[in-house]
Computed example of a mutant assay.
Amino acid sequence: MKPDVAPVFCSLKPKDVIGVVAPSARFDAQMFQKGVLCLESMGFEVHIPNGITSRHRYLAGTDRQRADVLNSLFADPGINGIIAARGGFGAMRLLPLLDWDTIAGNPKLFMGFSDATALIIPLISKGGICALHAPNLVSLGRADEQTLESFSRNLTGCFSRINLSSDQVLAGGRATGWLVGGNLATLVHMIGTAYQPDFTDGILFIEDVGEPAYKIDRMLTQMKMAGVLEGVKGVVTGSFENCDNDDYIPEIIQEVFFDANIPICMGIDVGHGAVNLSLPMGGGAILDADHACLEWDFAVK
């Protein structure tokens, strides 16, 4: 569902405390520690809850364990922001176990990407909280300077215009709306659930990794046939990393949105590529395909 009011962006400041949650797959301890040191070098304190190193099959603990950690971080007044440890799979399994009243009553900035898309979507719509589509904790440990600078600026509320390549513009025009979306495969798996995304009046952002072009085609076709693309005001894509026949993807996207008459741009450095810029999700955005840029206007609802 679309939020009734513009979600709140809870920016952070130095010495704020960032809690770590592991909503998805198990993580590498060495890369985890590098991510912690990275946050500390930016001036933040890091809170590592008990139990996030638990293991249950490929998951970082049972669903109840992982959900309890996230619920407790939102309920704790000493925690200012929350970052996902890594992606993989498992975040959507937590959704029925989360205390949405507590989350909505204690807004905090949530950071993550990939599988964390399953949390970002309902945090915006049910919690009324903007989230930061940004590197997970283990990703920070190996991030390049451009990624780290974008992360640091965005989580403190300094949003910079993102310029796109003009040869990646698939359809011209200018659109305003709330930025929504994330990992394409995760978005598709949420269709038909109580947490199905609503992109109405939104600028849709998508990215993915390891999916051949025909699967990208199949997922977008399913979304269109399910009606979830109705009301989209613009489309901007991130990287499609390690996706076979990725040269087909622009044509696929044009076919899916051929009758929408909306601006469409590709090639923003966000996702599973070497550069992963941060995006404030749930806030107002302006996609100007004629000038090949994406910028922010939080007055947009």
Rank of each mutant, 00 (worst) to 15 (best):
I129K: 03
I129R: 07
I129Q: 02
C130L: 08
C130K: 05
A131C: 15
L132W: 02
L132Q: 04
L132P: 02
L132N: 02
L132V: 12
H133Y: 15
H133N: 11
A134M: 09
A134W: 05
P135K: 03
P135N: 00
P135M: 02
N136A: 09
N136I: 05
N136W: 01
N136C: 11
L137Q: 03
L137S: 05
L137C: 04
V138Q: 06
S139C: 11
S139F: 12
S139Q: 14
S139K: 06
L140S: 03
R142C: 11
A143N: 10
D144Q: 15
E145M: 10
E145C: 14
E145V: 11
Q146R: 15
Q146G: 10
T147V: 12
T147C: 14
L148Q: 08
L148K: 09
L148C: 09
S150E: 15
F151L: 11
S152A: 14
S152H: 10
S152F: 11
N154K: 04
N154G: 03
L155E: 05
L155F: 07
G157H: 01
G157V: 00
C158G: 06
F159K: 00
F159D: 01
S160P: 06
S160D: 13
I162T: 11
N163S: 13
L164Y: 03
S165R: 10
S166C: 07
V169I: 15
L170S: 05
L170G: 02
G172W: 12
G172K: 09
